[in-house]
Design a protein around this nucleic acid. Structure first.
Lengths: 174, 174
DNA sequence: ACCTCGTTCCTAGCAACGCTAGATACGGAG
DNA sequence: CTCCGTATCTAGCGTTGCTAGGAACGAGGT
């Protein structure tokens, strides 16, 4: 209930509107109850983020397996990634925007997280050449993440988002 | 005084430690005085961010003009960018991390901001080929920004940062 | 039937936050 | 000597994350 309420509220009004008091009110318990389930607000956000990772992994997988063409697959995965960030800004924010004490690039990372990364890696693999797949995937991921955050923050005009993505893809596929 | 105090405090303890009360205490005035100079905390952060943009532009310029070799120039500019983000995390955060009501990719954008972007663009220009220089610069910038934020947020291990940058450069220069 | 005990939940409160209303001190202009 | 705009203050509002301490309640033993 707590996670669901936090997610709904965040997606509806943004994370700054998510307060312990409002969550408590919404689930019809008092505030201290939340602290007996989570260490604090950050832990609740982390839980929502993990849910979000699972969703993203699903999106990426269906995008990647939607076509046998290796070049189109990367494009599909990329647009799926960007679309996810675009349609679920609060979720994306919890996952990749904030400080978040989740183990990420380590074996203890949540499985859903590794699954999403693996989808990206599989899409990239045909274009890796002799480069290290893991590192290349991280680099490509960073580029996607940068496009998303700069556009979202208003640093980069939204209009030509597609053309920027095309430029990126042109440099990462061959 | 306000901007200087905010910047020092942010660089020393991070933005979450920067409160109006502490700033007021540090400059030895009462809190309302700050509100007669800035509309609110966000405006103070924006002012610090503009200062940071000027600093970054200087760093990028000296990096770009440090070598006549076009390929090395991009590399120098990139490492300068990353180093700036690494050594002044709070400043970088104010500039590109937060919501920030500054005009960015418009003619009204602060001159210092456009100056920094122009340095990036000049470094990229020799490798643009037939691509639109502005869009390509934005894309490259996004990739750098992604590398910075993912590493900073712990999403990507810091160790092989250099190799990731090398991969990125290999794809953006030719 | 009664007492005990762990669990679950609540009311109440702390310290800190961003921000604002209203009052006060002070200097130059008439 | 008065007036008035400016600069500054004290005090306080409403909100935040989080916690201390106590009340209610069901299971288990005597």
């Amino acid at each position: 209930m707590i996670i669901a309420a936090a997610r709904e509220l965040a997606e509806a009004e943004g994370w700054e509107a998510v307060t312990i008091r409002r969550l408590a009110e919404r689930i019809e318990y008092s505030q201290p109850v939340l602290y007996s389930h989570f260490k604090g607000k950050d832990a609740i956000m982390a839980a929502v983020a993990v849910e979000g990772c699972a969703d993203l992994a699903v999106d990426l997988r269906t995008a990647r397996t939607s076509t046998p063409d290796a070049r189109r697959a990367v494009a599909e995965v990329s647009t799926a990634y960007i679309r996810f960030a675009d349609r679920r800004p609060a979720l994306y924010d919890a996952m990749f925007g904030q400080k978040l004490d989740l183990p990420f690039a380590t074996p203890q990372a949540p499985a859903v997280l590794q699954a999403g990364f693996a989808e990206l890696a599989e899409a990239i693999r045909p274009h890796a050449g002799s480069d290290d797949l893991g590192l290349l995937t991280e680099t490509f991921w960073a580029a996607l993440h940068g496009l998303v955050t700069l556009t979202r923050g208003g640093r980069t005009p939204r209009e030509q988002h597609d053309r920027r993505l095309a430029l990126l893809l042109a440099r990462f596929t061959h």
